[in-house]
Each structure stands twice: as structure tokens, then as C-alpha cells.
Computed example of a mutant assay.
Amino acid sequence: MLTTSNFLYPQPRYYGDVNPENLVFNANLQEFAQRVSLISGLATNGKISIEQAFQNIETLWHQLEATKKQLGVGENPFQSDENR
């Protein structure tokens, strides 16, 4: 069933290694992309200043980096699930 939320914020399928850390990071990455899109649209239409848009996107980026670090995503890219 198509809801308003699914229509406005579609999430494509995840094709990477399936583990909880990657799935959580993927969801955070999707949210980051949606928010950057909204912020850039607001800046393009003159609703917020370019400086404010940059600050907002920079803050979102630091939050995404912190999440990646907390989850440990990408620390051992060549380690398989069998070796854990």
C-alpha cells in the first residue's frame, strides 16, 4: 500500500552485506540524502541563505560521520561474516 510517507520519502532496496550495522547506517544515509535535498531546495528558492544551508548540511554530515564511527561501518571491509 502506498502511503504519503512512502511517496514523499521512498527508500530503495538495500543490496549490501546484510547485518544490523549496515542496515542502520543505510537508513541514516537515506535520511541524510533526503534532508540535503530539502535544504538545497530551500536555499535554491531563497527560503534560507546559502550560508545557513551550508551550516545545516555540515551539521548533518558530522552526525552521519559520528553514526558511522559508532556503528563501526567500513572498519574491516575485507573481513567476512564467517571470520567474526
Results as ranks from 00 to 15, higher is better:
residue 1 M to R: 11
residue 1 M to Y: 15
residue 1 M to K: 11
residue 3 T to E: 11
residue 3 T to M: 13
residue 4 T to P: 15
residue 5 S to P: 06
residue 6 N to E: 14
residue 6 N to C: 08
residue 8 L to Y: 14
residue 13 R to S: 07
residue 14 Y to V: 01
residue 14 Y to K: 02
residue 18 V to Y: 01
residue 18 V to P: 00
residue 20 P to G: 08
residue 20 P to Y: 12
residue 21 E to V: 05
residue 21 E to Q: 12
residue 24 V to M: 00
residue 24 V to E: 00
residue 24 V to N: 00
residue 25 F to P: 00
residue 27 A to Q: 02
residue 27 A to H: 01
residue 28 N to P: 00
residue 29 L to R: 12
residue 30 Q to W: 07
residue 30 Q to V: 08
residue 31 E to S: 12
residue 31 E to R: 10
residue 32 F to L: 13
residue 32 F to V: 07
residue 34 Q to N: 15
residue 35 R to K: 13
residue 36 V to Y: 14
residue 38 L to S: 15
residue 40 S to P: 04
residue 40 S to A: 10
residue 41 G to M: 11
residue 42 L to A: 07
residue 42 L to E: 09
residue 43 A to D: 02
residue 44 T to W: 07
residue 44 T to E: 12
residue 45 N to H: 06
residue 49 S to A: 02
residue 49 S to C: 01
residue 50 I to H: 01
residue 50 I to C: 01
residue 51 E to Y: 03
residue 52 Q to T: 14
residue 52 Q to F: 06
residue 52 Q to I: 09
residue 52 Q to C: 05
residue 53 A to P: 02
residue 54 F to I: 07
residue 55 Q to M: 04
residue 56 N to Q: 13
residue 58 E to I: 09
residue 58 E to M: 12
residue 59 T to L: 06
residue 60 L to A: 14
residue 60 L to Q: 12
residue 62 H to P: 07
residue 62 H to S: 14
residue 64 L to I: 10
residue 66 A to Y: 05
residue 67 T to P: 00
residue 68 K to D: 01
residue 70 Q to R: 12
residue 70 Q to F: 09
residue 70 Q to I: 10
residue 71 L to A: 03
residue 71 L to E: 03
residue 72 G to E: 12
residue 72 G to V: 11
residue 72 G to L: 11
residue 73 V to Y: 03
residue 73 V to A: 03
